[in-house]
Design a protein around this nucleic acid. Structure first.
Length: 592
RNA sequence: GGCCCCGUGGUGUAGCCUGGCCUAACACGCCACCCUGUCAAGGUGGAGAUCGUCGGUUCGAAUCCGAUCGGGGUCGCCA
């Protein structure tokens, strides 16, 4: 039966006179009592069907019974439309199908929201009836482009000689990193598998195995709270390469992403190579390690300019070893006091700043409640450092360096978005390099790896390991796209002595390291090639490529903010019998 | 766990700040009838919401207050 099927959206003037059969859903219906029109929709588009009671009474009667979203089979002859009836907005607008045989293959209840329109619908409803939401044009388009993008990635990786390898989904729990999703073992009661947060260890073992160039379109699971760009399960382009340095990894990723980007016909062009920026420069200039470089509004250091100022808040912060930074907001002199002290101050407070200081630079001079605390020379220095001109405002935060960076960085992003300071179509990819190897954990005060403990150190910094570990730079790198972290990678440690010293710096005992990562360390004793790699979050690339602001728009069956899949109702309680078989007992009965 | 926003027929919104004219409005959808060139078809008529839930204030609550539930965003978290 389907051998004679013609795609609705593919019918053209050249098909006129021919007899075809189409299958699809009723997208719209225009019933004139006599003559009836149905726009029939399938994956390829839609086609106008004409039902004439005079020439095909049976088909017309069937059409009269149909409602939106009914599934039909319709056969008839393609006719050109009269010139005055051509619909230029439709790909198939020059033709129509005069139906003489029509069969209703499935009736449909009135859908809970309009399938044939793009309008906003409450998120919960969309997820509950995801199969209907997926029928709508936006997600149809997004999922097809997702498939093309991933196909493009595979084509590119294959073309560069990478081997696609599937790594296990049931793996050993890893002590560090994100919270694991656990799977109880039926055969070994009391033991658990974890679902992979990433195939990290396996891909490094693939390098030991001599596979040389590994990649995978890898599913990853992390049991952490959700965000607009974060789902508990997501997909990565996971890559690992032997005998390489940073530039080799960069080139491979640039090639894969840019060619897939073109194949999927994502917005704007991507320029390769992607620009590079050190972590230090990103923090200094933008306050964040994932700068949105589509607009200026950079942070400027004012610590020296205000060191001796009469403004107590600044002076005290500097005395305590803190810093003062500011951004010049073009046109900011027009902003009201309420706007700055309300909305903008909220933004910096949320990131830990105690307040937001500001100065308007107007034709009459520097103004605001705090202007009187600064000398003319100091005001001049502030203007010089920030580049603020007449009509601008300078927005400043004084605090510990980390708080200043985070709060002004957030303020910068807020202003960029709110005041539309950038071209929405623009695509800014960049590499962030030279990350610090370690950071101080805020809660425990312990040193922790910023990337992971197998990240190679910068050769120049090895000797700082024991003396000043926080200054040690690693050979880790990120890709940032329009202010969003797309993925990260590193050149790995393959020398046992260096790995040993990193573990020691982290306070991981030899015995503990053996227990946690023994298989990897042992593998490295059998001839490990120097290697490095990368993992790129595919959904985040898709979001930017399609101009979507939420990750759910590029995933077929996403979860809500409570990590529930509301259509099927996962997660859900299980039978006692199922628990018993796994050797499990709940501390509390599940809520009913 | 903290903070912010949202919740009104099937869908999307208005009304809420400033309580009473709300017997809750509009568009789409739905149902019936009319209609042979529409394509967001048109016309006529109709059904459908006690305003998320509970409690309070008040003569009177969609509207004010409190609690709670649900959804979204965000900070923490995400090696």
């Amino acid at each position: 039966m389907t051998t004679e099927r013609t795609a609705c959206g593919a019918v053209r003037l050249g098909d006129a006179g021919g007899r075809i059969t189409v299958y699809g859903w009723v997208d719209r219906r225009r019933d004139h009592g006599g003559l009836t029109f149905i726009d029939l929709r399938d994956r390829s588009g839609s086609l106008q069907l004409v039902f004439n009671p005079a020439t095909a009474p049976e088909a017309h009667a069937a059409a009269h019974q149909t409602r939106l979203e009914y599934v039909l089979r319709a056969a008839g002859v393609v006719r050109p439309r009269e010139p005055e009836n051509v619909n230029p907005r439709l790909d198939t607008g020059e033709v129509e199908l005069h139906v003489d045989a029509c069969e209703v293959l499935a009736a449909a209840r009135t859908p809970p929201f309009a399938v044939n329109e793009e309008g906003e619908v409450e998120e919960r409803l969309r997820l509950q009836y995801r199969y209907l939401d997926l029928r709508r044009p936006r997600l149809q388009r997004n999922l097809r482009r997702r498939a093309r993008f991933i196909a493009g990635l595979r084509r590119a990786m294959d073309g560069m000689g990478f081997v696609e390898i599937e790594t296990p989904m049931l793996i050993r729990a890893t002590p560090e990193g994100a919270r694991d999703y656990l799977v109880p073992s039926r055969i070994s009661h009391g033991s658990f598998y974890a679902l992979p947060q990433s195939p990290q260890l396996y891909k490094q073992l693939c390098m030991v195995a001599g596979l040389d160039r590994y990649y995978q379109i890898a599913r990853c699971m992390r049991d952490e709270d959700l965000r607009a760009d974060r789902q508990p399960e997501f997909t990565q382009l996971d890559v690992e390469m032997s005998f390489v340095e940073e530039e080799d990894v960069f080139a491979a990723l640039e090639q894969a992403i840019s060619s897939a980007w073109r194949e999927a016909e994502f917005r704007s062009g991507i320029v390769t190579p992607f620009p590079r920026m050190t972590w230090h420069a990103a923090m200094e200039r933008y306050g964040v390690d994932k700068p949105d470089t589509r607009f200026g509004l950079e942070l400027h250091d004012l610590t020296e300019a205000v060191r001796g100022s009469g403004f107590g808040v600044f002076a005290k912060a500097v005395q305590a070893g803190g810093v003062v930074k500011g951004i010049a907001l073009p046109g900011g002199a027009e902003m009201s006091r309420g706007e700055i002290e309300g909305e903008l101050t909220e933004v910096v407070r949320a990131l830990g700043a105690k307040g937001l200081a500001y100065l308007w630079r107007r034709a009459e001079g520097w103004q605001s409640g705090i202007a009187k605390f600064f000398s003319d020379a100091e005001l001049e220095a502030i203007g010089g450092a920030t580049g603020a001109g007449v009509g601008d405002a300078v927005l400043m935060v004084a605090d510990r360096a980390a708080v200043v960076a985070a709060s002004l960085g957030a303020l910068r992003n807020h202003l960029g978005r709110k005041r539309s300071l950038y071209d929405r179509e623009r695509i800014d990819m960049l590499w962030i390099t030279d990350f610090p190897m370690f950071e101080r954990d805020q809660q425990t005060g312990q040193l922790a790896p910023l990337h992971h403990p197998f990240t190679m150190l910068h050769a120049d910094d090895v000797d700082l390991l024991e003396t000043d570990p926080l200054r040690v730079r690693s050979r880790a790198y990120d890709i940032v796209l329009n202010g969003r972290e797309i993925g990260s990678g590193s050149i790995r440690i393959t020398r046992p002595d260096v790995q040993e010293r990193v573990f020691q710096t982290l306070g991981i005992e030899r015995e503990e390291a053996r227990r946690k990562f023994g298989f990897l360390l042992e593998a490295f004793e059998y001839g490990v090639p120097p290697h490095g790699g990368f993992a790129a979050g595919i959904e985040r690339l898709l979001m930017e490529g399609m101009g979507e602001e939420n990750i759910r728009e590029v995933i077929a069956f996403p979860k809500n903010q409570q990590a529930q899949e509301v259509m099927t109702g996962a997660p859900a309680p299980v039978d006692d019998a199922q628990l018993r078989e796994l050797g499990l007992k709940l501390l509390q009965p599940p809520p009913t």
